[in-house]
Amino acid sequence: MQRQGSIGGSAAFRIRVTGGVLLVAHLAFVAWLMLRPLDVPWVMPANLRPLAGIRADLALGWPEAARRIGEGLALLAPLGVLLPMTQGRLNVSPLGSLIRTATAGALLSLGIALLQTGVPGRVVDIDSLLLNTTGVALAHVAVVPAGRSWLRRRGLRRPGPQEEASQGRTPTIPRVGIAP
């Protein structure tokens, strides 16, 4: 039984499996990258003031600021595409899909930040949470609506009424009254 608006047939299965495999691989890479201990002589204090770290990055100058902000945006950005891909649904509200994906990205970023508190050399940075969530949302807006539209045009969709009608008429059961 298919959910309403999901991709039909084996194409849906291939897309979901591919999305799931890529999602697990990306999350494993992010975990390896962000949760391994750093060997540093000293650690900066945690940044709990929103946009303070971004302002400090911008004060460093254009190339360094662009690199640091770009890294924050790009770290979880693939989730903006991979999370909807694992669902395999084509006919959904674009705003609802964006909100679900951005929320999942924010929660994953928060989970990483909380896990980093126990890793030597790592500190919590609220700006990384903001940049990661923004990266997920931007990737989602840039790719997912166009991808869904392309898949709908290719015909990878749920069978319509005329295709379901070709299977024959649904049998009806005559109503039976209540016995006296």
Score class of each variant (00 low, 15 high):
179 A>H: 08
154 R>G: 13
49 R>P: 03
5 G>R: 00
3 R>S: 07
154 R>P: 06
116 Q>V: 00
12 A>Q: 11
133 T>N: 13
140 H>W: 01
100 R>I: 09
69 I>C: 06
78 P>L: 04
39 D>R: 06
46 A>I: 03
144 V>D: 01
40 V>A: 11
79 L>K: 00
1 M>E: 10
132 N>G: 12
12 A>P: 01
64 E>S: 13
155 G>Y: 07
122 R>A: 10
93 S>P: 11
75 L>Y: 09
38 L>R: 12
167 Q>G: 15
136 V>G: 02
172 T>C: 12
33 L>Y: 12
24 V>Q: 08
27 L>C: 13
123 V>W: 12
62 W>F: 14
119 V>T: 06
27 L>K: 05
66 A>R: 13
9 G>I: 04
109 S>K: 02
110 L>S: 05
71 E>L: 15
85 M>N: 02
106 A>I: 07
178 I>W: 11
158 R>Y: 11
139 A>H: 05
21 V>D: 10
17 V>E: 06
68 R>E: 14
10 S>G: 04
35 L>K: 05
138 L>A: 13
36 R>V: 06
84 P>H: 03
180 P>H: 11
86 T>I: 04
178 I>Q: 11
136 V>T: 02
23 L>K: 02
158 R>E: 15
17 V>G: 05
76 L>Q: 04
113 A>V: 01
32 W>K: 06
9 G>M: 04
24 V>G: 12
172 T>F: 14
154 R>E: 11
20 G>V: 03
1 M>T: 06
101 T>D: 01
56 A>M: 12
177 G>A: 14
149 S>C: 07
